[in-house]
Computed example of a mutant assay.
Amino acid sequence: MLSGSYLSVMEAQTQEQFRDRIVRFAQELGFDYVSAMTVVDHSLSHSEFINVDNMPQAMVDAAASATTYRRDPVMQHCKRGTVPIIWDQTTYVNRGVADLWENLAEHGYRTGIALAMHFPEGRHFMMGVDRSESLPGNATDLTRMVADLQLFAVHAQDAALRLFVPVDMQMERPKLTPRELEALRWTMEGKTAWEVGSILGISERTAVLHIQNAMHKLDAINKHQAVLKALRLGLIH
């Protein structure tokens, strides 16, 4: 059900399209609200925040304070790390800021999941989904929900960095060899390294080497992110 959302958000061409597609994903996942924040650090003392969400205006006004941001345990968690955080009232009570949760709860934000990604050259992406209902008590269902959000966020950050990061801060087009591009194209089609080797008439080990070289040139942490970056840069289609 959610797989179409992954590709759809990556193809967004405007902020409005990006917003529509993250809202649709959140609703399919079972959440009322979603927020996707792109942060660009221009200097040590100045950062630009571009937030796309479906937050009610009353909630926007309540959350606008810098003091609230510094006290919020979910925001502080995302500022420092990349591991997803599953939050509810207990998260705020344990940090001594129960009043913040009460304010959130008034606007329908009682629990949620949030995560962040931090990239070189001062680029960051944070995404969270929130709702008034409790999260699933079944560990398997909750784990699947977190995994769906993580996978979607990988695609969403690619679109967000393309749409919102200044051109002079975007990744330059790296020079990949024809073999590296072919290996990525077949990886995009779901082929294993062994299958890629068979198609290209090379050994599995050589196919793995081409994919790893492409990952390194694209500054990707795995082959799937390499494919996404290559698509965004127009290196493969």
Score class of each variant (00 low, 15 high):
residue 7 L to N: 08
residue 65 S to R: 11
residue 78 C to R: 06
residue 124 H to V: 01
residue 224 H to K: 03
residue 120 P to I: 09
residue 208 V to K: 14
residue 236 I to S: 05
residue 87 W to S: 04
residue 130 D to I: 08
residue 207 A to E: 05
residue 4 G to T: 07
residue 187 T to K: 14
residue 230 A to N: 09
residue 134 S to I: 07
residue 105 A to T: 10
residue 161 L to R: 02
residue 92 Y to W: 13
residue 96 G to K: 15
residue 181 L to T: 15
residue 47 S to Q: 15
residue 190 G to T: 13
residue 224 H to W: 13
residue 128 G to N: 05
residue 167 V to G: 03
residue 60 V to M: 12
residue 9 V to N: 00
residue 20 D to Q: 11
residue 94 N to D: 14
residue 25 F to W: 07
residue 200 L to A: 10
residue 143 T to W: 07
residue 133 E to G: 04
residue 5 S to C: 06
residue 181 L to P: 05
residue 189 E to A: 15
residue 30 G to V: 08
residue 157 Q to C: 04
residue 40 V to A: 04
residue 13 Q to K: 14
residue 233 L to D: 02
residue 135 L to E: 11
residue 217 K to D: 05
residue 105 A to W: 04
residue 36 A to R: 01
residue 53 D to Y: 02
residue 145 M to V: 06
residue 145 M to I: 08
residue 32 D to N: 10
residue 24 R to D: 13
residue 236 I to L: 06
residue 124 H to I: 01
residue 161 L to H: 03
residue 217 K to I: 08
residue 28 E to G: 01
residue 52 V to K: 00
residue 18 F to G: 01
residue 219 D to C: 05
residue 38 T to Y: 00
residue 210 H to C: 05
residue 10 M to F: 11
residue 217 K to F: 03
residue 3 S to H: 10
residue 96 G to Q: 12
residue 13 Q to H: 06
residue 206 T to V: 09
residue 159 A to Y: 04
residue 51 N to F: 01
residue 132 S to V: 13
residue 172 E to L: 15
residue 168 D to Q: 14
residue 10 M to K: 05
residue 57 Q to N: 08
residue 115 L to Y: 01
residue 151 L to R: 07
residue 206 T to L: 10
residue 62 A to G: 02
residue 56 P to W: 06
residue 43 S to T: 15
residue 222 N to A: 03
residue 96 G to E: 05
residue 226 A to V: 09
residue 207 A to I: 09
residue 100 L to K: 03
residue 86 I to G: 09
residue 154 V to M: 12
residue 226 A to W: 07
residue 34 V to G: 00
residue 160 A to N: 00
residue 15 Q to N: 08
residue 48 E to Q: 15
residue 109 Y to P: 00
residue 96 G to F: 14
residue 98 A to C: 02
residue 143 T to H: 12
residue 10 M to H: 04
residue 171 M to R: 15
residue 182 E to D: 15
residue 171 M to N: 03
residue 136 P to D: 06
residue 87 W to Q: 03
residue 25 F to C: 03
residue 13 Q to T: 13
residue 210 H to F: 14
residue 56 P to K: 03
residue 170 Q to R: 15
residue 168 D to V: 07
residue 5 S to G: 03
residue 82 T to D: 11
residue 42 H to D: 08
residue 53 D to V: 01
residue 163 L to C: 07
residue 99 D to A: 13
residue 155 H to A: 10
